[in-house]
Design a protein around this nucleic acid. Structure first.
Lengths: 190, 190
DNA sequence: ATCGCTATTGAGCAATGCTCGATAAATACA
DNA sequence: TGTATTTATCGAGCATTGCTCAATAGCGAT
């Protein structure tokens, strides 16, 4: 610990916030959300507990921002140029899962932890549903179609994660299992 | 608080355990798992914190038993006489969700909370997968088929819960959306 | 009645979320 | 350059909560 570390290293608020959220995202790859303690985050950032509460009024607020940041990453990964076909969308999803299934698992396994987390996931899934509906060129989906596509996302998540972890089947087969099921489901739900 | 309540009311271990687990299950309908505090459970049971730790060495052990009890209920509800068709199985599932979707949500939304909870859910889902495979008369499923059916369960869960909460579509349509998708998925995965 | 087993308790410790007043590092202004 | 203002940062301390341990009291067996 040199001088610079010992004395107060004042940073600009924006950078502190992003630093703290980054630490949270990193920790999420190791353990479930609610096992991340403020003490540890603060220690890793080299600041005091109190400072974290200066930036995030409550632990939940901090968690929420971390989860939101993680969700944003997923949405960015699947969203192509906007006019993506279902195949490209599924490809993007599989790419994301293949590369980052650990953080993804950790992140989305925290889904049930609390109401506020769950709401963030609802939003994320709703956005994904929109992407899928757009890719399928479905203009005005009925409630049932939306629900069916949302449920298909759960199916896709589960299957892709299992594939990424246990290498069940080739990527092509998984891809076919995803698009095939989606096609069928949407046709049934119309 | 009469005399009988004030003085130590000694109970037999078995009954205490089931009482405590029952309280846990009841509380699960109100809030997510990890928001249930030992203090509150003990208070509701009219005992001291220490006693709860006498029966369950750790809070996690207590949680685990509560979740296990909840899972057992679901398995009992879907398991017919053993030689059930897929239709009866899905019917049982929908019945269960229709009647008890609140506790079911609360229960299964706790899935990601921690590794040990997640393992219990893996077991439960594996058992459900077996039921489905039996109903489909699939003797020796490949890894891919198992994975696909497991993922279908996630789809079924999501769709059924959405239906129970928002009444999206008639029960018949949901039923068709479930069995139809399962049929298609299994055919693709073979 | 008495003894032994154990269900049950209360006091207390450590970790953790959170509050509050004080301090020091930047910045603005003279 | 020097002073004032703002605010990023800290340390001490409180309440809750998971958990331990020694002591107590209800029940069955002798």
């Amino acid at each position: 610990m040199a001088d610079s570390a010992r004395r107060r290293a004042r940073q600009r608020p924006g950078e502190r916030r992003t630093q703290l959220i980054g630490i949270g995202l990193e920790m999420l790859t190791t353990r479930p959300l609610h096992q991340i303690t403020i003490d540890e985050v603060a220690a890793k950032a080299g600041i005091s507990r109190s400072l974290l509460f200066h930036y995030f009024p409550t632990k939940r607020d901090y968690y929420a921002e971390v989860v939101r940041a993680g969700s944003r990453r997923l949405l960015r990964a699947t969203r192509g140029d906007g006019s993506a076909s279902i195949d490209t969308l599924v490809d993007g999803f599989l790419d994301f899962i293949e590369r980052r299934h650990e953080p993804y698992i950790a992140l989305f396994r925290s889904a049930g932890a609390d109401d506020w987390v769950h709401e963030i996931f609802r939003d994320t899934r709703a956005a994904l549903t929109d992407q899928v509906l757009t890719a399928l060129a479905i203009e005005q989906p009925s409630e049932l179609v939306r629900a069916a596509v949302g449920a298909w996302l759960a199916y896709a998540e589960e299957l892709a994660l299992d594939w990424a972890q246990h290498h069940t089947g080739s990527r092509e087969r998984i891809h076919a299992l995803l698009t095939g099921a989606l096609d069928h489901i949407v046709r049934l739900a119309r």
